[in-house]
Simulated scan of single mutants.
Amino acid sequence: MSGGIARGRLSEERKAWRKNHPHGFVAKPETGDDGALNLMIWRCTIPGKVGTDWEGGSYPVTIYFSEEYPTRAPKCMFPKGFFHPNVYDTGDVCLSIIGSDWRPAISVKQILEGIQELLDDPNLASAAQHQAYNLFYKDRASYNRRIKKQAEKYPAPPI
């Protein structure tokens, strides 16, 4: 029964997203080889904020929902090896709203906006990737160059 609740909520989330979502963001359920939508896995992109070193990038995030959603937070992942203090080497995102501060009322839109905010404003008290943390903390100029290079790896689509 809980799977029905998860899929029902995700269907509503999809409708709300299609009606109103932030400019430059993409979030859609995965489509199988047979053309069927899988509401439990969403392929997303998050634009880098204008005026930051992340600007110009369109960063891929996959959201994995469990049958316990919305009671249990989804798992959000960047590609493996994504460079950021709050992203594990596996790509798992370390963000309070999908962790200890999870509430069932949090929407996909809020999750993606929270991740976008985290990109330029990492939580150094909850570092997940030591290389990125150390570079951010000890050599900010090198960190910023690395972020700009990463933005080139994930270019925003032409408008």
Rank of each mutant, 00 (worst) to 15 (best):
P158I: 08
C44Q: 13
P29M: 11
A128H: 13
L124K: 10
S2A: 13
T45A: 11
D89N: 14
F25A: 09
G114S: 06
D53Y: 06
R43A: 04
A141H: 13
A16V: 12
P74E: 05
L39S: 08
S96C: 04
R14D: 09
H130P: 10
L37P: 06
G57H: 12
I147L: 00
P157T: 04
Q110A: 07
P47D: 15
H84N: 11
F78V: 00
G24Y: 06
G56D: 01
R43E: 14
W102Q: 01
A125V: 01
T31N: 02
Y88K: 11
G32N: 05
S126M: 12
R7W: 04
F136H: 13
A128F: 15
E12N: 15
G24T: 04
R43Q: 14
R145A: 13
Q150Y: 00
C94Y: 15
Y154C: 02
D120M: 04
S142Y: 01
Q116V: 09
K153N: 00
I159E: 09
S142F: 02
D120P: 07
D139G: 06
L112S: 02
P122A: 03
T62I: 12
A6C: 05
A6E: 06
P122F: 01
I46P: 13
D34W: 02
Y69A: 03
V108L: 10
N123G: 07
R43H: 15
S2H: 07
G91A: 06
K28G: 15
G32V: 00
N38A: 12
G91D: 01
N144I: 02
N86I: 06
